[in-house]
Design a protein around this nucleic acid. Sequence first.
DNA 1: GTGTTTTAATAACGATCATTATGAAAAAGA
DNA 2: TCTTTTTCATAATGATCGTTATTAAAACAC
Lengths: 202, 202
Amino acid sequence: MGRHREFDVEKVLDAALCVFWRKGYEGASYADLTEAAGVERPALYSAFGNKEALFRRALDRYYERYLDFIPKSLELPTARAVAAHILYSAAELNTRYSHHTGCLGINGVLAGSDEAEPVRQALIEARAGGEAQLRERLCRAKAEGDLPETAKPDALAAFVMAVSHGMAVQAKAGFSREMLEAVAEQALSTWPAGRSTSSGPK
Amino acid sequence: MGRHREFDVEKVLDAALCVFWRKGYEGASYADLTEAAGVERPALYSAFGNKEALFRRALDRYYERYLDFIPKSLELPTARAVAAHILYSAAELNTRYSHHTGCLGINGVLAGSDEAEPVRQALIEARAGGEAQLRERLCRAKAEGDLPETAKPDALAAFVMAVSHGMAVQAKAGFSREMLEAVAEQALSTWPAGRSTSSGPK
DNA sequence: GTGTTTTAATAACGATCATTATGAAAAAGA
DNA sequence: TCTTTTTCATAATGATCGTTATTAAAACAC
């Protein structure tokens, strides 16, 4: 009973995702969101709740649809392949769309007003989740001899993520995909060799 | 002729710098700024102009007083020492103050409303300036044989800055100085060796 | 068809944003 | 001491922020 919804919730969410990607959480106004979604304000509120809830939905979608290369990379056979796949995928994603470069997880809220603190924490936790998955994968690699005994999975995971985050900053500053790939290549040249891996400099 | 200024302009600028460092450009309100500075609104306007001008003054000061380790590091004898000094200094600065972690140049505006675009560009240019200085220094190192013929100063400089930016993101997420130093160590672990440098793995 | 329920659209809400009039207080020149 | 000039503090400016009443339109149940 009752009237049907006239707009596609998924499409509206995609539009909101793009706006947040480009302008961040606090930089995106409802004027921006409604214009991009082609839907009036109350429709956004009835469908998603308030701005924070809408952003969290967009963030979940971002991890599912765009950052899915992280769980996929974890299934690769070697630790080096995992790291390489993450870094090159990040270089591609960060430069894929010219109107919203970088990474939503970084652009969202790095620093902002106190009101945005819950959203900031959500982004921090999301990033920490990805880093934890990578860390576990590198622990396994160490156990399997794919990484040397001296390797520190904590530091390696943090390093890979740091390079990834740094590339996101650079992408937002207009760096080309090629430049980011050169950064990724340099980062991987420091990768420690395991028992059966050909260390191969460069 | 006329009344004297009752507040210390330098101290007020320092206070504003801290607020911007913590909350970024758009996240810092005049309510925040005046409270931190202990000065009323019109005083800030008469002394510095508008918010953008105040931020630019704070940014200049930031580069002079906090990012001075970059020009200093360029004078070190080897390329590796330059990179190491930059990365370890960044790890320290990013975690020096618990109430404004990370880097003002990154926290300022990564993504924001269209009104903040000029400030975003200013931050991008400031970062590009630092990276250009490092690139030139690495070119010199290559010419001096301090870096191998195969080394790419562009990519190396971008890599060092990417790691630095990534550490800033991590610091803002609460990473400890020790963790950031581990990231720096990993980044430096396979710095390309020149003719006279001991490559020394790990 | 009639009544009920849900959505759509217009417009308003109070709060806060950056930016300034406005007028009192204070220091310098005469 | 009186006038001039500058700074100080209070408070108001219009604009925009996120969030909702409110009312009209549409789709089901009966």
